[in-house]
Design a protein around this nucleic acid. Structure first.
Length: 179
DNA sequence: TCACGGATTCGT
DNA sequence: CGAATCCGTGAT
């Protein structure tokens, strides 16, 4: 007798979800599921609880404000790629590229269920430079899923750690978190 | 080739 | 509040 199994995993989010404007995608990522398959094939899932939007060359808090460089190159691709970078020589921060091609945007994943702080996320997920430009559509080690039941309520506030940016950009309420 | 500073975190 | 820790960036 064959036993039927029910697939309880969510449905992977694909290109069209990420190719929208970052200010739509950043809050929409709240409640979605980040999935990491490690080297030993174990799979972990977390709910995204906090994000920040970085939008275009005009946004002085966005790395792309320095233009197209080897580091920011991936942000100019269409949505659905991973942008990781090392900060303070210690932490790999996880970003998701959004928007259409040549619209340099990304969402910083700032909080996950049970993991607070972007630096700790990179450590827990064991991220490194090899994740730069990882394709969320096809990757077997990192992707996102739409959960069977979603959460909606969230709040917005100002972004953190960007005191170097002029007030016009520093004060944008582009940080989103589940309530 | 060099100097600077950062989308952070932790301990004092 | 200061240290840890190192690479990308822009200037020399």
């Amino acid at each position: 007798m064959t036993k039927l199994s029910i697939d309880t995993t969510g449905i992977r989010l694909h290109r069209n979800f990420f190719t929208r404007d970052v200010l739509e995608v950043a809050p929409d990522l709240l409640g979605k599921v980040l999935v990491r398959q490690f080297e030993d094939n174990t799979i972990s899932r977390w709910i995204i609880t906090e994000t920040e939007a970085y939008k275009g060359e005009e946004d002085r808090a966005c790395h792309a404000s320095k233009g197209r460089t080897p580091r920011t190159e991936v942000m100019y691709r269409q949505g659905g790629y991973i942008y990781v970078y090392l900060i303070y020589g210690m932490y790999w921060l996880l970003n998701i590229v959004t928007g259409k091609r040549d619209q340099p945007q990304a969402v910083l994943i700032r909080g996950l269920s049970a993991i607070n702080g972007p630096g700790r996320i990179g450590k827990q997920l064991n991220l490194d430079q090899s994740f730069y430009e990882e394709d969320l559509n096809t990757s077997r080690r990192l992707w996102l899923e739409k959960p069977t039941q979603n959460t909606h309520a969230y709040k917005s506030s100002v972004r953190i750690g960007i005191d170097y940016a002029p007030n016009e950009w520093r004060l944008k309420p582009w940080r989103f978190s589940l309530i």
